[in-house]
Design a binder for these strands. Sequence first.
DNA 1: ATACTATGGAACAAAGGTGTTCCAAAACGA
DNA 2: TCGTTTTGGAACACCTTTGTTCCATAGTAT
Lengths: 187, 187
Amino acid sequence: MPADRTRRAVLDAAARLFGKNSTASLSDVAAAAGVGRTTVHRCFATREELVRALVEDALDQVTEAIAAARPDRGPADAALRRVVDAVVPIGVEVRFLTAEPEMFNDPALMSRWYATLEPITAAVRRGQDDGLLRADLPTAWIVDLLAGAIVTAWDSVDEGRLAPREAPGLVFSSVLFGVTRPRDEAR
Amino acid sequence: MPADRTRRAVLDAAARLFGKNSTASLSDVAAAAGVGRTTVHRCFATREELVRALVEDALDQVTEAIAAARPDRGPADAALRRVVDAVVPIGVEVRFLTAEPEMFNDPALMSRWYATLEPITAAVRRGQDDGLLRADLPTAWIVDLLAGAIVTAWDSVDEGRLAPREAPGLVFSSVLFGVTRPRDEAR
DNA sequence: ATACTATGGAACAAAGGTGTTCCAAAACGA
DNA sequence: TCGTTTTGGAACACCTTTGTTCCATAGTAT
C-alpha cells in the first residue's frame, strides 16, 4: 500500500546508513528517510526483508550500469574502461554491499553476484584470448582485482582522499598497466 | 586475573567469528573460544572493549609483519614484494577489520591505521623518487590499491578460488605490472 | 465535500544481547 | 596435600530492537 517514492526513500536512506554502520536500527533508517517507523514496516515487514530488497536493488543497479557500458563490444581494454566509468560513480548506493559479510553466506545471493559480474568476466576472457590481457593470470582473479580496485576507489573518494572525477581513470590505469613505471621505449 | 592464553583464545575466536559475522554475540564468541561467557567478561569488561582490543591486536600483527619485511631496505619493488609475502598469509587474523566500517569513524583508530601503513607509504614514495614506480599516481592511492589487492586476495583464498601459495605472487605481479599483456620486446 | 489511502505516533509484548553477582568446581602452584 | 586462583554455570535486571496493533491525521482523487 505504501507509495513507491516512500519505498525508494527508505531504500536510499538504508543504503546510506548501512554503508556507515551495518547495525543501524530501523528507527534510524526511518528517521534518515524522513518517515515514521510504522511506514518502514509497511514497506518491509521485517528487517531481513529490507536488507534483502536492499541487496537486490544494489545488484540491479550494478547490473544495469555494467550492461549500459556494453562490455561485449569492441576491444577488451576499451570495454573495461567503459565499465569502470559506469560503475565507479554509483558507489554510494552500493557501498554497503562490501560491509555485509553475511551476504557471502547466502548461496542464492552469491550466484546473483556472480551473474552480475559475468559480463565483465566475459570481456576479460575475450581480452585474454585476444592477447590484449595477460593470460597467465586467472580470469576470475582479474575480475576480482578490478572489483577490489573499484571498492578501494569508493573508499578513497568517501574519505576525501580522491576526487570523484579522477577515480575512474586512476582505477583503470592502475589495474590495466600496474604501478611500475614503464621503461623508456625509444632509446 | 584471567590467564594470558585464555585471553588469546578469546581474541582469536572473536577475530574468526567477527570476520564471518560482525554481529556475533558474546555467547558465540565464548563458545567458539571454548570458555564460559563469564570468562569473556572477565577478560573484556564490555563488548566495546573486546572489539577495541581486537582491532589493536590486529593492527599490531600487521605492523609487525610489515616491519619484519624491512620495507625500508633495498629497491622498492623488492621491498613491496617482501611486504606482500608477509602480509597476505595473516589474513585470517585481520580479515574482520574490513568488515568493521565503524572503525573508520574513530579518528584514533584511523591514525593508528595510517601509522601502520606508513612504512609501506615510505617504500612507495622511495620507488616513485627512484623512477621505479609511476610518479603520475598519488602515493596514497598506490598504497590503497596494494592494500585493496591484498584484501581481495584474502577473500579469494577464503572462498577457495585461490590457492594460498599463489596469492602473494598474484597480488604483487598484478599490482606492479597490471593485467595488460606486455608487448613483445624483441621484434 | 466525501470517501479512500497513506502516514505517523503511541503503546505494547516478545526476544535477544549485555553486564553483573554469587557460588561451586576445576586447575594450579607451593 | 592444601590453599589459591581461575573458571563455568545459573540467575538476575536492564536495555535495545523488533514486530504488532490501534487510532488520529494529512493528503488525494472523485
